[in-house]
Amino acid sequence: MARKPSMGLKASRAIGNTFGHILLVLISIIWIAPFVFIVLQSLRVETTAQVGYLLPKKIGFDNFMFLFSPDCNFMTWYFNTFIISLAVAVLQTIMILMMAYTLSRFRFKSRKALMNIMLILGMFPGFLTMVVLYQVLKLLNLTQGNAVGGLILVSVASSGMGYYVCKGFFDTIPKSLDEAARVDGATRFQVFYKIIMPLAKPIIIYTILTAFMGPWGDFIFARYIAFGEPSGYNVAVGLWSWLTQDQINNHYTHFCAGGVLVAVPVIVLFMFLQKYYVEGVTGGAVKG
């Protein structure tokens, strides 16, 4: 008698689990499908325009060949983006670390005021100042053909304002460690370099990863300052220019092929460092 209800429970649990698995398979399909579609279309040879069917009638690597051909700017765009990404990943990380460490470890007079100012500045929409930044970069001769330098400068200069996640992590490292080292005669710089940095490895990797991934999708500002000069485009701007009304029929499949080439390295990197990304994102959300 006592077993019967437990059997019923088991059965309903089994049904629930089966249903759960079916749902998860459906979800996976929905999330993966567009990427499978992009790959399929990048291999389509018969026409470069959009079509109403999925499977290519003729498969080949023509679209990729086009990207590598000398009369296509794609390689320039790719190289530009890569340079920007590397520079931003290094410099932005340094800026953020400096800011986060200082605000987490030092108690100086204007600290609260500084944090409030940055909070308030963050409430202004980012594109508001686009015109000014463009003009400033133009004065420095860092627009259009030289947009790469301009983009690096702008992404790095104000990046100290994105210190929140990093500071949240530093706050969890016990201060007694700092004090112990200080008693042993270490300077503040040594404390930062020899104690905090090694302990903060996960969050540093997270910072580098997000900084590196940012420029691959940066599009709005990049388009504005490289305006009309394809040699200064990054991949996002370049690929976008292929999807405008008058270009889409000639370049739709090229866009897909380019998208694949952009996504693959980023995905590989991301999958390797996934653990750190999850840590950073979760930490950032919980601390607000």
Partner: peptide
């Protein structure tokens, strides 16, 4: 699911 985060938004959204 995480896989879809890794792909730059301008590619997935434009597509």
């Amino acid at each position: 699911l995480v896989f879809s985060i890794a792909i730059p938004q301008f590619i997935s959204l434009l597509y």
